[in-house]
Write a protein that binds this DNA or RNA. Structure first.
Lengths: 327, 327
DNA sequence: TTGTAGGCGTTATCAT
DNA sequence: ATGATAACGCCTACAA
């Protein structure tokens, strides 16, 4: 009834249990014929080492914590499922698994600490990192291993993997400039979100490169990350005295809002989003696609090989669709 | 450095370790003043029982397995993140956590068994249940606890929670009939998917109720769950000799495809989807919303209170948007 | 009410 | 090369 243990295997193979353990953990130390006998017994019994016992003795759970937040009711479903799958897949090679937990913003660190002290997780993956995010320093102080999707402000000295957001919006701007656009607006979410700031930076840099920065006053809008806000922004931009002919969004949610406003008014307005969510596909919205699978793998690698390189910047890729057409 | 153990707490509190254990597991058996001293020591040290040790001795991991599949590149991101969050939240009350694993369709059961024998999970949550899904009987035979989001064909005798898909499409049809539609088509995914079959049943029943079934020949289309297929279906329906004025989809992916075809052609065609994905919001697609949060909670409850009711059917709710307008 | 002993399944150390 | 012993941290008897 109960799953077989080393002892059972040993009995069946006619050896002691340590020999069984050796077969599993130091195969070279055991005579081939004995090994085969033990392996046969293992296969016959369908024996699997008990992970809890292993964890207990090794003081390692081979579990990685991930805080799963409730889906934003106003935003688009994001890329969590892709990220989670990638991380699970990456962890598999090292025999690690993802453990999900929930928490409020305020007590996320406390929850992580509790889980860590309880030996339930070896480390944690952070995301949604803000410019002055308190979590990295807090976890460092607590000596809890972690890796983050995203970096804090200036010099993030913790292990992180991030998308080069600036490069993403810059690529979007380049694309639009190439199509002949000269007035290109930018819409993004809350100030303080590192992501939004870096996206803005890419937009500004690319405009500047083409000498287009001067005419861009009043074309940088920031607000909540909702479709409704995006729609308001779209209206505002189109009502502008000298309206832009193109808009770059820091995410698909806002970009889709803008696109809806444009389509509703029958206005010609090129729009490029960010994230390449399924909704972008549905709406024919050009969007900057993040290599989330690569991010997931890199994060797990960074977390498991502690002390490796402290940061990794990955390049997103512009996916062109109908929403960015000739002006 | 290492997290504190019962022993440490005992030393600080000046009692034996079993007294500490008693404070935690049988508080009434220990004198209040002693208890307070122990509790103070626990708080001071930030002691947390080691879960691996607990699991080992209790032969219970308090972990629930969930197979995370790669995101379908052609479909819309589904509701996994909502479901995962709901289940994590529900598990929290019982001090359970979700453990993610990956697997191919063929060896999902083998992986679950391996995890279970290894004591890594106590049970597993299944989803994407087919009419003749082999997993429920297989897991039952292996005596591995599980609960499924969805049921098999006729009498599912395993613990399951499901959406009343038939009621969902029926509600969509009712809504359309009320708006005056008389020719209402139905598009769905692969045959064999229990979900699609039940959606079709609801559509047919509702049509029949209004005596609209006769004219519906050729208005039931089945294919792959992709936007492209939906678009082809939309074209096909609009090219029909006697085209429908409304379409109900078994999911948002197909429905959005249909909607795109209709909008591209400037055709008046009411469309209702299923799942209420973020893309539906973006597209103003009316859609049947599943109470995923309730599903998640119910599934965990079903899994943890083994032997409870074997099935629970939850009602979805139609969310009306612009895509279903007057004919 | 509190303390003592044993075992959960594994691996590492040390003999043989 | 293989076998005995101890330890990881916890809990549940049982004894005091």
């Amino acid at each position: 009834m109960h799953p077989p243990t080393v002892e059972d295997v040993a009995r069946v193979a006619g050896v002691s249990r340590q020999t069984v353990s050796n077969v599993l953990n130091a195969p070279q130390r055991v005579r081939p014929e004995t090994r085969e006998r033990v392996e046969a017994a293992i296969a016959k019994l369908g024996y699997r080492p008990n992970r809890m016992a292993q964890s207990l003795q090794a003081a390692t759970s081979r579990m990685i914590g991930y805080r799963i937040k409730p889906a934003d009711p106003h935003g688009l479903s994001s890329i969590h499922d892709r990220l989670l799958h990638a991380m699970s897949e990456a962890g598999r090679a090292a025999d690690h698994h993802m453990l999900l937990f929930t928490a409020n913003d305020e007590d996320e660190v406390a929850n992580v600490q509790a889980l860590h002290r309880a030996g339930a997780i070896d480390g944690v993956v952070l995301y949604g990192i803000g410019i002055d995010d308190p979590r990295p320093p807090a976890l460092r102080r607590l000596r809890i291993p972690f890796a983050a999707f995203g970096r804090t402000g200036v010099d993030s000295d913790h292990p992180w993997v991030d998308i080069d957001n600036a490069a993403g919006t810059a690529a979007a701007v380049e694309h639009l400039v190439e199509l002949g656009h000269r007035r290109i607006a930018f819409v993004s979410g809350t100030v303080g979100a590192a992501v939004a700031d870096r996206c803005a930076e890419g937009w500004r840099t690319a405009l500047d490169k083409h000498g287009l920065l001067d005419g861009s006053h009043g074309l940088n809008l920031r607000g909540e990350d909702t479709i409704a806000t995006g729609e308001r922004f779209g209206d505002a931009l189109l009502d502008h005295a000298d309206p832009p002919t193109a808009v770059v969004g820091a995410n698909d949610t806002l970009a889709i809002g803008v696109l809806r406003a444009a389509r509703r008014r029958g206005a010609r307005l090129a729009v490029v989003g960010f994230d390449d969510t399924p909704a972008a596909v549905a709406m024919d919205l050009s969007s900057v696609r993040q290599p989330i699978e690569a991010v997931g793998h890199a994060i797990i690698r960074a977390l498991l090989n502690e002390g490796g390189p402290t940061g990794l910047l990955l390049n997103p890729e512009l996916v062109v669709r109908a929403s960015s057409a000739l002006p």
